[in-house]
Structures are given as C-alpha cells and as structure tokens.
Amino acid sequence: MVKGESLNQAEAEARRRLGTDVVVCGPSLAANRKLAGTIETTANGSAKRCPPHDSAGPHALPHYQPDPRPPEGHTFYETEHRKAR
C-alpha cells in the first residue's frame, strides 16, 4: 500500500463511494481501525474487516471492504508494525 495525498474524513468517504482505496495512517492500531471502520460504513454501509495475507507482500495492511460488494476498493489502516509506504 502506497500513500497518496492527505485527505480529511469527508474526502476519504467520497473516495470510497467511488471505489478508490484509502489508507488511515497513525501510530495507534485501535484508533486507525476505528476511523477506517467509520469511513467504510459511512461511505458504503455494511463492511467487514480483513487481515493481510502473506502473498500480498510485506507491506500488506489490514482493511475494511464493503460486504457485499460493490463498490470495489478498500479502507486500509496501519498497525504498530505495518505501515503504508
């Protein structure tokens, strides 16, 4: 996961409605997870949380995604040990 431009929450929600990926960054797992969940459910309603898989590479992040899809895309979030580049 590679970081792009900084967004506020409303902008992040708008991006998610369009199916674009966003990432919540910061030092706290709990805070990032909570904000990512809020962004995803506000944007797209019901969501589920998915942990990273090894085959996605060392920079893979946990994320929320709509349940069910569409739209496409994910709200990723950083953990204490996993950071977006």
Partner: peptide, 18 residues
C-alpha cells in the same frame, strides 16, 4: 475474532493473525 467489535478482542486477534 478479527472482526470483533470489542477493541481488546480485536487487538488479540490482530496479534494472533500475525
């Protein structure tokens, strides 16, 4: 467990997943 709404349970599941 990873999808738990309880923060502590979710933290434990995050560690268990790693």
């Amino acid at each position: 467990q990873f999808n738990s709404t309880d923060d502590q349970a979710a933290d434990r599941a995050d560690a268990a997943w790693e």
